[in-house]
């Protein structure tokens, strides 16, 4: 199932590397990625695909020190 997330991370490349690594390692394929720098934070919009429930990814991302927030949009909501 596909999910769209917006992740706010510290604006450092390593912060992005770190959370992309987590997404890959926890079994979520990256479908789309868009990164925008604002002040202290990068806002990363991404679409991932996996058979696994999405909370398995969001709970791991929320643990990362550099991740400020994780917002989940289901793709259906996006379509509205």
């Amino acid at each position: 199932m596909k999910h769209q997330l917006t992740v706010a991370v510290k604006n450092q490349s390593v912060a992005v590397e770190r959370f992309l690594r987590v997404a890959r390692h926890r079994g979520f394929r990256l479908m789309q990625l868009q990164l925008e720098g604002q002040d202290e934070l990068f806002h990363v919009k991404m679409t991932v695909d996996s058979d696994k429930p999405i909370y398995l990814l969001t709970s791991q991302l929320n643990k990362l020190v550099d991740v400020h927030s994780v917002d989940l949009h289901t793709l259906q909501q996006q379509a509205i």
Binding site: Y55, L56, S59, Q60, N62, K63
Partner: peptide, 8 residues
Amino acid sequence: IDAAEVGK
């Protein structure tokens, strides 16, 4: 203490 362990 680690929320990511619950339901993992």
